[in-house]
Design a binder for these strands. Sequence first.
DNA 1: CGCAGCCTTGACAAATGTCAACAAACGTGG
DNA 2: CCACGTTTGTTGACATTTGTCAAGGCTGCG
Lengths: 232, 232
Amino acid sequence: MTDSPFAAVRHLDLFAQMSDEAFARLMRGAYLQSFPPQLQLITEGDPSDFLHVLISGRVELYSSWDGRETSMATVHPVSTFILAATVRDAPYLMSARTVEKCRLVLIPSQDARAVFEQDFGFAKAIVTELARCYRSTIRTSKSLKLRNSQERLANYLLRQLGKSGNRTRFELLAEKRRVASYLGMTPENLSRAFNALKAHGVEIDGSSVTIVDRDKLLSFARPNPLLDDYSN
Amino acid sequence: MTDSPFAAVRHLDLFAQMSDEAFARLMRGAYLQSFPPQLQLITEGDPSDFLHVLISGRVELYSSWDGRETSMATVHPVSTFILAATVRDAPYLMSARTVEKCRLVLIPSQDARAVFEQDFGFAKAIVTELARCYRSTIRTSKSLKLRNSQERLANYLLRQLGKSGNRTRFELLAEKRRVASYLGMTPENLSRAFNALKAHGVEIDGSSVTIVDRDKLLSFARPNPLLDDYSN
DNA sequence: CGCAGCCTTGACAAATGTCAACAAACGTGG
DNA sequence: CCACGTTTGTTGACATTTGTCAAGGCTGCG
């Protein structure tokens, strides 16, 4: 089992608790594939044919309506996406595209649902994962409704700062236009929000962000675990 | 079992598939209670002590930050809320208050988690429910980011129209101020949005909404199952 | 009746989006 | 390695959207 090309997947929280037999059944129809950058993996509205597991690279989830487009999330390895659509056997609510070169494991949704019906460990892991995603989305929604764009950016920067080990300087992991879309604003507005944050201890040079005065930024951003934690 | 005061709960999707034994264990520490209107049931940030099941009445979920408040959802009977917090043994992300007189079943979160670990049927039902909630939140988030306030209102009205059996006339089920907050705008802005929708076939008189020209409203609202469906 | 809360409206302010221009960064092909 | 064209980011001017504040009307309830 562990010498299959899917060994890396086996240790994911989502698959770690299931029986070897169930895992084998899940991987029987699965395949590992590489994709070039900027490739559309999923189109929203399509039936959910595969459960996707990102092994390396980054994937952007986004949505469109009436010609407008918005970035919903960025997926980092190693984790799954569009789990909810697979579970419910319902159309994807978000599209997905690779940001850079990516390696993915694709598991036929039918198999995922069949194994989910049979393997308790898998079902339990799915619960945990879905609850995590759900809470993350609630936080995003709260941030959108309770904060203006400068506050959203300030807290976004503080979260990125935390992820990069609290160094005072870090790189934006996405193009600014995508950051803007993710935060629910236009690129122009993001540009101005960065300028406004100079007064609150933030310096920006290209994609390099320096937190000059962390306390000043904190007192402006007022981060809150009920909106900004990504841990649970 | 069925003659316990929790018989109504037994038939919920969430509890229907579990064993009698597991259900009994779940209900051992549970209690049924009535609450008056406008009572705060849950405060966000508190540890999730109880899984709540709404039997009758309506409950509003809302959130606050820095003195601002926003309405996140309205819970209708019979269904559960704050399932994700219970599952993850994490703090509530939303507060809850009764809108009117309510009857609730309160199940100690500890028991819910214990039974979840043991009963496969319960775990499977939780997956289905969480996936539904997650997708609903994604839709809300998309609507917030991709539509302006008039479009959000127009589609909200069309959804309410559908729920009320597609009569041309229906009542708003909440105060306008709550509808406004739910849709992510101020009461004043909602008032003006209603005025603007007169040009698109909507008439409003107090809390009574009449869809004068459904086609005209549809062509303005451009509803989309990937943003507006509440079924899956 | 009178108070309190909600809704509406108007006038105004602030936030955000749009458009256009230009600069900087990037990638490709010579 | 450079030249070129494309894309991205920035800035200014302006439009639109949305929020804020204040006033007044309406409603429901004690």
